[in-house]
Write a protein that binds this DNA or RNA. Structure first.
Lengths: 135, 135
DNA sequence: GCCGGGATTAGACAAAGTCCAATCTTTGGC
DNA sequence: GCCAAAGATTGGACTTTGTCTAATCCCGGC
C-alpha cells in the first residue's frame, strides 16, 4: 500500500482529482503509512521538511478525498475526525485509553437481525466500533 | 420513560448523585423525551422558561451522568456529542441528511466473526451505527 | 439555623474546523 | 511553449464545541 509519485498521480486522476503539489504530499502521507491520522497530524507530517501546505488546504483536501471515496472518515473520538486510507469494507477497534485505532476486516464478519429500514431510506454503510480498554 | 420529580430524585440518588435543582432540570429534559440531544439543545431546553442553568453546569452534569451510567454518549456526528437516556443495550440508525438518530434494540441483533482481542484488553462495548440516507 | 464541602457560575480560554478574498498554479487550446 | 481561464492555495479571522478557574452559592447533617 505504498505508492511512488507516478502511482499517486494516477490514483488522484482516476478519482477525478487534479494532482497538485500539496495534494500529492497529503496523499503520500496518508498512503505511505497504514495509520489513522487526524487533520492536525497530517498537517504536521506534511510540513515536516519544508513548510509548504496550509491548514486550510489540508482540510480542503481531506474533505475532497473523502467526497471522492479515496479515504474514509472514522468517527470514534468526539474531539477529532480520523482519516483512513483503507477503503476496503472493514470496521474498527478503538482503544479508549491510548486512542489507538485498528482495522477489523469485514470479510468474515456478519451482522444479523438488523430491522427493516423505513421506506424511502437507503443504507449508506454500517460502522462497527469495538471499544476496548487496556486491563 | 417519563418520571415525576420524586422518581427523578430517587433515580439520581440510586446512582450516587446529589439531586440539585439544575441536575433535576437536566434529568427531566433528558428523560421526559426519548430523543438524542446535544449539549447545546439541552442548554436551550433547560432555560426555556427561566434562565437558571449555565453552560458549564450542563457540561459538568452531562459528563457526571455519563460517568455514573445514567446516560450514554452517542458519537456519530463529528460536530457534537449526543446524549442518550436509553441505557439498555442498543445501537443506532443515523440519517446523515437530517441528523436524526433512532434506536435499534440489541435484542435480536447478533455480530459474528469478531476477531480475538489482543491479550490484556477488555471489550468496553460494541457500537453499531447504520448510516442511512433519504433517497 | 449554622457550617463545610460540594455545586454552580460567568467568562476566559482552547482546539477543531470553516470561510473569505487575494494570490498563485495548472491546464488545455493554440 | 505561451496565455488566459478555471481552479487551487493561502493567512488569518471567525465559529463552534467544550473545558477551566476562581469566586460565590446552596444543600444536608448536625
Amino acid at each position: 500500500m505504498s505508492y511512488n509519485r507516478h502511482e499517486l498521480i494516477a490514483l488522484l486522476r482516476r478519482h477525478g482529482i487534479a494532482p497538485t503539489h500539496q495534494r500529492l504530499e497529503i496523499a503520500n502521507v496518508l498512503f505511505s503509512r497504514c495509520e489513522h491520522l487526524a487533520a492536525d497530524q497530517i498537517l504536521t507530517l506534511v510540513n515536516e521538511r519544508h513548510a509548504e501546505t496550509s491548514k486550510a488546504t489540508v482540510y480542503n483536501t481531506l474533505n475532497l478525498f473523502r467526497d471522492c471515496g479515496l479515504i474514509r472518515e472514522v468517527i470514534v473520538d468526539p474531539k477529532r475526525v480520523f482519516y483512513d486510507p483503507n477503503t476496503e469494507p472493514h470496521h474498527h477497534l478503538y482503544n479508549i485509553d491510548t486512542g489507538e485505532i485498528t482495522d477489523i476486516p469485514a470479510n468474515d464478519l456478519a451482522v444479523s437481525g438488523l430491522p427493516e429500514l423505513p421506506p424511502g431510506m437507503v443504507t449508506e454503510g454500517v460502522d462497527i466500533v469495538v471499544r476496548v480498554r487496556t486491563l
